[in-house]
Design a protein around this nucleic acid. Structure first.
Lengths: 139, 139
DNA sequence: TTCTACTTGCAACTCAGTTGCATTAAGCTA
DNA sequence: TAGCTTAATGCAACTGAGTTGCAAGTAGAA
């Protein structure tokens, strides 16, 4: 993490009333440099087992409550987490999961209309998951 | 189940090359009379524990492979299953999950445009999950 | 009615995610 | 900058949805 990144990451934590710890900085760093949503296991691996899985889960939970990350989608018995600022508040960009290899992709660039609610329903967030076959598996 | 329903359900199983057993008829019956997607536990409860949870899971798995049911969404550590004929092949109707009470709803009537894929990605199914607050919890 | 392959139930398992508790450390205050 | 308070961390043990192996039961074809 370069000094500028570190500064902005620290202010994210400060704004959320979260202490600035090595684990949190490291997890934010991993998430911000990934172009896909990550599972606890992938984060733990990226950090070379420097932190206990409980720490990862609790950190993600704190981030979830502070709206710093969100649960992008659930696949093969694991949640995939990603930075919340990758999405609008009302709706998240679509995610694509390959049924053959399990790999997943964020379709950042692709937007879709916000779905209108029936009377008395309040929408907080809308998520789209597309299941299909990725380019690598099509051959 | 009335005789007509039974007949049509039997033909569904026959077409899928699945034996027509009491458990399968019962599970199809429960799913077809529910207006929300159901978890294994809810199905087991509806059937008053007449069948083992392994039977429910294996039956749902057979139905999944035969495209008779599909996994509608994942919430609070459980998959919710619903009859596949409730949706189009390419996309499923949106599901709504209440963040407060956990109750969920199928928005059968609401459609949304099919999301176009980037080059070389093949879409098999598109699912939308809306998280929010349901009418009962708004008061 | 017989036979065989598919289905079911039971017991034991797997493993992502959670909880309790003792220890450590962030960061505020004087 | 030392001391203090409280939040964060690590470890061990747990939870429970979903899975697996295997023996026993049964659908349905012959």
């Amino acid at each position: 993490m370069n000094p500028d990144e570190k500064k902005s990451v620290k202010s994210i934590l400060k704004n959320a009333n979260l202490r600035c710890t090595a684990a949190r900085l490291a997890i934010l760093d991993v998430l911000s440099h990934s172009d896909t949503a990550l599972t606890q296991k992938q984060i733990t691996d990226s950090l070379k087992d420097r932190y206990d899985k409980v720490t990862i889960y609790r950190t993600l939970d704190a981030f979830l409550r502070a709206d710093i990350v969100h649960k992008a989608f659930y696949q093969e018995r694991e949640w995939h987490f990603e930075l919340a600022d990758r999405c609008g508040r009302q709706q998240c960009h679509p995610h694509f999961a390959c049924r053959l290899c399990g790999k997943n992709f964020c379709f950042d660039g692709i937007s879709y209309p916000i779905i209108q609610m029936p009377a008395n329903f309040e929408s907080l967030q809308q998520k789209v998951l597309i299941e299909g076959v990725c380019p690598d598996c099509k051959n």
